[in-house]
Amino acid sequence: MASNINQGFFYYEDTYPDNHLYDLSSCLMNKEDYDFVFIHPMNIDDAGHKYGAGSKEYAHAVIQNDKLLSTYIPQWIEAGYSVVVGADHGMSENGYHGGESLEQRQTALYIVDSCVVGGYHSKQLTTLEFAPCYVIY
């Protein structure tokens, strides 16, 4: 069966450093001309599970990721990429997700693209509205 994924780098430990992941991704993006690049950093999620969403460790992981993105997003935009930043789930104060509480279900979504109207938009989307399931043959 043919795959729509032509190339990939897959790490296997949740503690793989996000700065290494972003750097490697940027190097690959500069080397090749991709239609789509999916980057899945894990350090925020890892800190949330270990220490909870209200912890200083979680806050530190978020701040570190923000710093990294503030460096890389302008480079990616300059290279012609649109950037979507989101999360696959929220996190409870105790480090859990998958439940029905708003803190476990709601996340922020940022889209950086010249075709998107800038500013704050309060419309809530479900995961299925934003990224519906597709069957790939």
Rank of each mutant, 00 (worst) to 15 (best):
G119T: 02
S25K: 04
I5C: 06
M29S: 10
F38R: 00
V116R: 02
E13T: 11
Q106Y: 15
R105S: 15
N6D: 14
G86M: 15
L24M: 10
S26G: 05
K67C: 13
H60C: 06
I39Q: 02
S122W: 06
D35P: 02
L109D: 10
C133E: 10
G52T: 00
S70K: 15
G95E: 07
N94D: 14
G86H: 12
C115G: 11
K31V: 05
Q7N: 10
N30S: 11
G99Y: 07
D88V: 09
S25F: 03
A131N: 02
N65I: 05
L68R: 13
F36A: 02
Y22M: 04
G80Y: 06
D33F: 04
S3D: 15
N43V: 06
K56E: 02
T107N: 09
N4A: 14
L24N: 05
F130R: 06
S92L: 07
E57V: 02
E100W: 09
E78F: 07
G118P: 07
Y16I: 05
F10P: 00
N19M: 07
A53H: 00
Q106N: 14
L102V: 14
P41T: 02
C27Y: 09
E32A: 08
S101R: 13
A59V: 06
S55Y: 02
G8E: 08
I136G: 04
S26V: 03
T15L: 06
W76H: 05
N94W: 09
I111C: 13
K123E: 14
Y120D: 05
L69N: 04
G52H: 02
V84W: 03
L21S: 06
A53L: 00
L69T: 01
F9M: 09
F10R: 04
A108L: 12
I39H: 02
D66M: 08
E103F: 08
T126C: 03
I111F: 09
Y11S: 12
P17I: 02
Y12I: 08
I111L: 12
Y110N: 07
G98S: 08
K31F: 08
Y22C: 01
E57G: 03
K56P: 00
F36M: 05
G8V: 01
M29R: 00
G54F: 03
E32D: 12
D18V: 03
V62S: 00
V37G: 01
E103H: 09
V117Y: 05
Y11T: 13
L128S: 08
L109K: 01
E100L: 15
E57M: 05
T71R: 14
A47P: 01
M1T: 11
N19Q: 13
D88N: 10
Y120G: 03
I44R: 00
V62Q: 01
F130L: 15
T127E: 07
P17Q: 03
G98M: 07
K50M: 13
